Simulated assay, not measured.
Amino acid sequence: MGEQKRKTAASQKHQTEFIFGKKNYQWMLIGLAVIALGFILMSGGGSDDPNVFNPEIYSWRRIRLAPAIVLIGFGIEVYAILLNPNKGKE
């Protein structure tokens, strides 16, 4: 019975600690939302008939804006990974 008490005391001391904190996960979700927005902006512009060319596929939104938003989203993801969750807590 004494050994069982030691095991429970040891398990109470040892709590699971995640690599990332709550703030990291919040920034990761924001980054994923920005990336998804970029891909949504990139979609469309095709033609139902393969013999008809639709020049809308080369719109400013699909060529410049959407890839820039996706890259910004990846930058947010890098920031979320590198963010120190313990900074400011003491």
Rank of each mutant, 00 (worst) to 15 (best):
G2V: 00
Q4W: 00
R6G: 06
T8A: 07
A9T: 06
S11N: 08
Q15C: 02
E17H: 09
F18N: 09
I19F: 15
G21I: 00
G21K: 03
K22R: 10
Q26M: 03
W27A: 10
M28W: 12
I30R: 03
G31K: 02
G31R: 06
A33V: 06
I35A: 01
I35R: 07
I35M: 01
L37Y: 10
L37T: 13
G38S: 04
G38V: 00
I40W: 14
L41R: 07
S43Y: 09
G45E: 12
G45V: 11
G46D: 02
S47M: 03
S47L: 04
D48T: 15
P50C: 00
V52K: 11
V52W: 13
F53R: 10
N54I: 00
N54H: 04
P55L: 06
E56N: 14
E56D: 14
I57T: 12
S59H: 10
W60G: 15
I63V: 11
L65E: 00
P67I: 03
P67V: 06
A68N: 10
A68W: 03
I69H: 05
V70N: 13
F74T: 08
E77W: 10
E77I: 11
E77P: 07
E77T: 12
V78M: 08
I81T: 15
L82E: 08
N84G: 13
P85W: 05
N86W: 13
N86C: 10
K87E: 10
K87D: 11
K87H: 11
G88E: 04
G88I: 04
E90C: 06
